[in-house]
Design a protein around this nucleic acid. Structure first.
Lengths: 206, 206
DNA sequence: AATGATGAATAGCGATCACTAAACAACAAG
DNA sequence: CTTGTTGTTTAGTGATCGCTATTCATCATT
């Protein structure tokens, strides 16, 4: 049984001179703002405060660090409040809860604007195609998570189709947030979508 | 009056060895697929079939060529069929015409998928910030054009707000088209948006 | 043909890219 | 201590980046 998880048992040797978590966080800030191709290894090492070999020893490659950043991003910012969505009183209210959370996330004053997953790695150098595929896969997962969260409110056909619709709106909201749209303006989009859903699915619970 | 347009009057000297229009088209294909930072000057000169100095003589810089590509892109693909939108029978039908055209554009089998403006230059190296600002400005113009096309169907408040909503959906549709969504799937998004608009603005003409 | 203007080709600029070999430093275990 | 392990440091690797000085080729004009 036991999941043989050996606690950070010292393996001997020189300890890390930098905080790995903080390094990922620093890299996230850079990648979030400038994208994968807009950040060089030199930018990363300078911001983290280490030399290139340390970065490669810890993360393998620039792409490896980027992957770890995306994992961390999804853990911290990529997931909406599923509970508040599923406990909504109607499909329209569930959509509102979901989208309001997203608007707050992409316009949070203390963070970079936009969503790393929604509008990240849209186009890139052919050599980075694996990263682009990974980004597309993460967008797909995001859409599936939206569908799951809406499960209680309608049948699978309606839910999957609506999830794609909402994913599109959220991706557009991410871009407009980057472009400087105000939270109020983005909230208007949310209200319009909610109104449309409410009109088409009046009060019903699947 | 007179728009002093002097026809391609030979100014003496060696003539261009390459077709400038075709060069822009070739560059467009590359930038469209791989983004600005994903295409090198070497890629461009190799694809066009010229040496770097010729590219710089003709376009000034990589960024200059990119700008010319975007101008050309907007002329050819960036504008929807305004006439068919404005001649629609209702606001909902106008929205359908507008969005259907966009879906066909971003999933055209003979062209690169997605929209260069909608999902281009979302994040980039700080040194390319002017290009990112230009891209954001073009997205803004796109939104204003949508609003203009919808003018006949509602008051300015409704139209501007709806234009932002539609712009977001179209930006998301561009990303999903790149990610491999089928035209039918994207068309479902359109129908959902149209249904919502129809429900909220029944048959009315502003 | 001679002249002047213009584009094209060769070759290479300095800078930066992602990445690493080799030597040193800091730990645990013996 | 010595030995082994591991991370850090210095100093670079070759490749590629966007771009250009120079020279040559091709045109219109004289």
């Amino acid at each position: 049984m036991g999941a043989m998880e050996r606690e950070a048992k010292s393996r001997g040797g020189r300890p890390w001179s930098f905080d790995r978590e903080k390094a990922v966080e620093t890299a996230m800030r850079l990648f979030w703002r400038h994208g994968y191709e807009g950040v060089s290894v030199g930018d990363l090492t300078k911001a983290i405060g280490i030399a290139p070999p340390s970065l490669y020893a810890a993360f393998g490659s620039k792409a490896g660090l980027y992957g770890e950043v995306l994992d961390r991003y999804e853990e911290n910012f990529g997931s909406f409040d599923v509970a508040s969505v599923r406990s909504a009183a109607s499909l329209a209210e569930a959509v509102r809860a979901l989208m309001q959370g997203a608007v707050e996330a992409v316009t949070h004053p203390d963070r970079e604007r936009g969503c790393m997953i929604s509008s990240g790695m849209a186009a890139c150098h052919p050599g980075h195609a694996p990263l682009a595929r990974d980004a597309a896969a993460r967008r797909n997962v995001m859409r599936e998570r939206i569908a799951e969260a809406l499960q209680p409110f309608a049948g699978p056909g309606v839910v999957d189709r609506l999830a794609r619709h909402l994913a599109a709106v959220l991706q557009g909201i991410s871009i407009q947030a980057r472009d400087g749209a105000t939270p109020a303006e983005l909230q208007e989009i949310v209200e319009d979508v909610v109104s449309g859903v409410a009109a088409r699915f009046p009060e019903g619970v699947g």
